[in-house]
């Protein structure tokens, strides 16, 4: 009954506005400034475009982010589907199985995977015991390790939006389809899948945005050849000490993320979360 006021917001939002101008906008300006040699040339971009290291990191980033998103989607969908079919009470209990990993530090998970996947890790030890021979599968410090670590981190992020859209489906639709004689697989293909599409899309886009910027998992679980753009930023900043190149890589990564972030925010906006 009272519509949003147009005046009087100042005192409420001023602290947040000042902070985000100073600590979010200015840093972005700094990267742009450095990436263009204080605004004078595009040399840093030229340099990275010629660098094979950059090309490899770029390819790795896109390929890894793509597959990590797809695998997380499959795993997340399986879980969301299972959760959606439970009673509210059971669902709340099972949710903890997703929430706890979600809340666990990525360092803890990465460290745990070094224990699980290592040369003498749990899996290799188990396989050795099983076969009686020394098994040392290379499960870590390679692409496989990166994928395991990333999907483990990203799957919960798929579960939440997909579960929300699955729960929004009117259960009467399932009963109606059953009464009309549809088989479970047909019901899944014609009702569940299309009606959960918005959640899937929102989930995949936000997961892709996260995956593109991954830094810790490739650093801890990947090999030298699995460097992603984020690691390259770190490499140029701390080891080469070339802030211009580091910034140029950062800008590139930012732009890459932007391609996915814009549709993701548009979807979120249509769902109307904070903005009215």
């Amino acid at each position: 009954m009272v519509t949003s006021a147009t005046r009087g917001a100042g005192p409420f939002v001023a602290p947040a506005a000042i902070l985000s101008l100073l600590v979010a906008l200015v840093p972005i300006a700094f990267i742009l400034y450095f990436s263009t040699m204080e605004g004078t040339s595009v040399e840093p971009f030229r340099t990275i475009l010629k660098s094979s290291l950059f090309h490899r990191a770029m390819t790795t980033t896109v390929v890894v982010a793509f597959w990590a998103s797809i695998i997380s989607l499959v795993l997340g969908y399986i879980v969301a589907l299972h959760l959606a079919r439970q009673t509210a009470r059971r669902r709340a209990a099972l949710m903890v199985l997703v929430l706890l990993p979600f809340w666990t530090s990525i360092l803890v998970k990465s460290y745990a995977f070094t224990i699980i996947l290592g040369r003498e890790g749990i899996i290799n030890s188990f396989l050795s015991w099983l076969t009686g021979a020394q098994v040392a599968l290379p499960l870590i410090f390679n692409r496989f390790g990166v994928m395991v670590g990333m999907t483990n981190y990203l799957t919960p992020l798929i579960v939440f939006p997909v579960l929300a859209s699955l729960l929004a489906i009117d259960p009467a639709l399932y009963r109606a389809a059953e009464v009309m004689g549809a088989k479970p697989i047909r019901i899944f293909l014609t009702i569940t899948l299309p009606l959960s599409a918005p959640g899937v899309l929102a989930g995949v886009l936000s997961v892709a945005v996260m995956a593109l910027g991954f830094f810790i998992v490739p650093a801890l679980l990947g090999g030298r050849q699995d460097l992603m753009l984020a690691n390259l930023v770190d490499f140029y900043t701390r080891e080469v000490l070339d802030w211009n190149i580091a910034s140029a890589v950062g800008v590139t990564l930012f732009a890459l993320v932007g391609i996915f972030a814009i549709p993701a925010t548009l979807i979120r906006r249509t769902k109307g979360r904070i903005a009215s």
Partner: peptide, 17 residues
């Protein structure tokens, strides 16, 4: 924006700043 901008990019900007 910190939710969308990769942490590394955000971190580098703040580091330079």
């Amino acid at each position: 924006s910190p939710l969308v901008i990769p942490s590394v990019v955000f971190a580098l900007g703040i580091y330079l700043y």
